[in-house]
Design a protein around this nucleic acid. Structure first.
Lengths: 335, 335
DNA sequence: TCCGGCACTCGATAGCATCGAGTGCCAGCC
DNA sequence: GGCTGGCACTCGATGCTATCGAGTGCCGGA
């Protein structure tokens, strides 16, 4: 029941609505180049498309608007990531050419790049720390019983945690604790730190045990320094009710929700969640385009774009695909 | 010509407008308890207040709205930070009672606390790194010619920078470079790092020089990990035009603007910038309430609240004053 | 100096007619 | 059988007018 003509009609409705945000009428559709039938025929097909749930009519005598199902069909079978245009390609190219610096900086800038390309909000999350191994670990005294444990991971991330010990510990013993800790932790994945065997000095052991447990719990929660959200102000322009903006902002501020959104689709490659599909109530009016990026063949994180359901999917898909690929390649070079 | 009655009238107009966002008429004002005159008299005074620039009339036959000058007078002479109410005091108390963990975490949570208390956007910036001294410095290899320099500062902050060396460097020499670097940098303020004298090994010297210059430039720019902005979604509710929301969001995303805003008033103690006073064009409709916080007698950073010009000043002032004081005290305890 | 009274202003609201984009349906045509 | 032109109908949007009422400015009297 979805013959070629109906597909063409659905496509025109979706494309038109994305552009104008106005319900699309049969006359407009009939005028489009690839629909060579009269408005009356278009109307008949639109009734069918509405009954099958692809379109929706806000009220009698208004044009049609795509439903989530309509967008879904559009994304799945009517569109493939169109190529980016010249200037955008150049933008991406020059970005990765001059990008440099630490992992965090790179991810942060990538998020800005993505919102710049799409004019929607963007999210970049780095590698879940549990997959990285420890390159270096150090205890630094901050006076009295306060100690900072700093670990450098194989992906270039730095994890730190604050410890408050039961007893004071001097510089010398801190150094001993660092050395002992290093012997047992370096090279181990953060997700699977072994208990550190006793060293014979109870103060040292206490510090090391505290450090290990702090690092372990750091491995659990998503590192806030590896999550980058950008372009919220651009996205605001795509909504016309302050209330919608507020809801979406509220979600973007709750990083764990955003991270969850991205993690959910990590193994599906480039993918799209439309309207209610992602199951976050406040984002009913939103769609998310996500792709993982790979460093040396391993999934190392994900990037995504969040915009209104009527977002410009071809562009968003193209941008996310392109950037995730380039980012992965770039980070592989470095390592 | 600002006698007591006019002050009272101005106060009522400001308070009323803050609450309702509607122009305030003479009748409302006359009904207020501390204004014991008739509406007609109030009107006469309102004309005077308008001529002197404290009030504004959107159009003939509408009520009056405070001007920036009106808010300024209100803030300067009509209001002192009223005490917080019970539940809020409790909120602050329990927050600082159970707050723990690293500096960054604390500042981040403080920002959330502030927006929770005031329902506006909040900003917390940590110590400008140049005032801190180096507690520890370490070079960690990340494979090939990539090295990460990690420095722990006296305030518990961790600065890192990514180096790309001209030549490969092995683990042993990295350790030597770390040791050499430590000898010269530890205890020095980040703002005034000395050049490291030659060690006799050119590779080591190259790494150390690169590290020093990276740290120096890190000292320049505000550390993005020490700037925390929160509650943007709450603030959105206070505006009714999507466009205003967009403008303000745009500013909040540009951290250097926000940081500048706070730094400007650091030495003025608790202070308020109303409407155009802070000189940021996109924030004409906004006010900022800022206070520095002190750790052991030294200014260590600043916190602030950003809301519409018609923000609830007594509450905002009280919250900012209270939180900055408690935060400073809390951080002093730790150190 | 204050206040009551009064004419006036002007945005907001409601009612009403009009317009027009869009629909559904039907009868005729290929 | 499928497509199309024609046609009556729906209903939001637009615009006009009348009305309402909160609020003002001003004046004259207490």
């Amino acid at each position: 029941m979805m013959d070629e003509r109906r597909k063409a009609i659905l496509r025109v409705v979706v494309e038109e609505y994305i552009e104008t945000a106005q319900p699309v009428g049969s006359t407009h559709v009939a005028r489009a180049p690839h629909v060579a039938v009269s408005p009356a025929t278009v109307r008949n097909d639109m009734v069918a498309l509405e009954q099958e749930g692809y379109l929706h009519q806000p009220h009698t005598s208004a044009g049609r608007v795509p439903t989530d199902k309509g967008y879904r069909f559009f994304v799945d079978t009517l569109v493939q990531p169109g190529p980016l245009d010249e200037t955008e390609l150049q933008q991406v190219g020059s970005f990765f050419a001059k990008a440099h610096g630490a992992l965090e900086e790179m991810l942060h800038d990538t998020s800005r790049l993505l919102s710049g390309l799409t004019d929607y909000a963007s999210v970049v999350v780095g590698e879940p720390p549990e997959d990285a191994t420890v390159r270096s670990v150090q205890l630094v005294g901050l006076g009295a019983r306060h100690v900072l444990v700093v670990a450098v991971l194989s992906n270039g991330a730095v994890t730190k945690a604050h410890l408050e010990l039961a007893d004071e510990i001097g510089e010398g013993r801190l150094a001993a604790a660092t050395a002992h800790l290093s012997r047992w932790l370096i090279g181990r994945p953060l997700s699977d730190l072994p208990p550190v065997p006793p060293s014979g000095d109870s103060l040292v052991d206490a510090a090391d045990a505290a450090a290990v447990s702090a690092l372990r719990s750091a491995a659990q929660r998503p590192d806030p320094e590896q999550v980058f959200v950008g372009g919220a102000s651009r996205m605001a322009a795509a909504f016309d009710a302050v209330d919608s903006v507020r809801r979406v902002l509220g979600i973007l501020e709750q990083q764990y929700v955003v991270v969850g959104l991205l993690r959910d689709v990590l193994d599906r490659g480039l993918s799209v969640a439309i309207g209610g599909e992602h199951g976050v109530e406040s984002l009913l009016e939103c769609s998310v385009v996500v792709a993982p990026y790979e460093v040396e063949g391993e999934v190392a994180g994900a990037i995504g774009v969040l915009g209104p359901t009527r977002m410009h999917y071809p562009k968003a898909l193209a941008a996310v695909a392109m950037v995730s690929q380039r980012l992965g390649r770039r980070l592989s070079d470095d390592a």
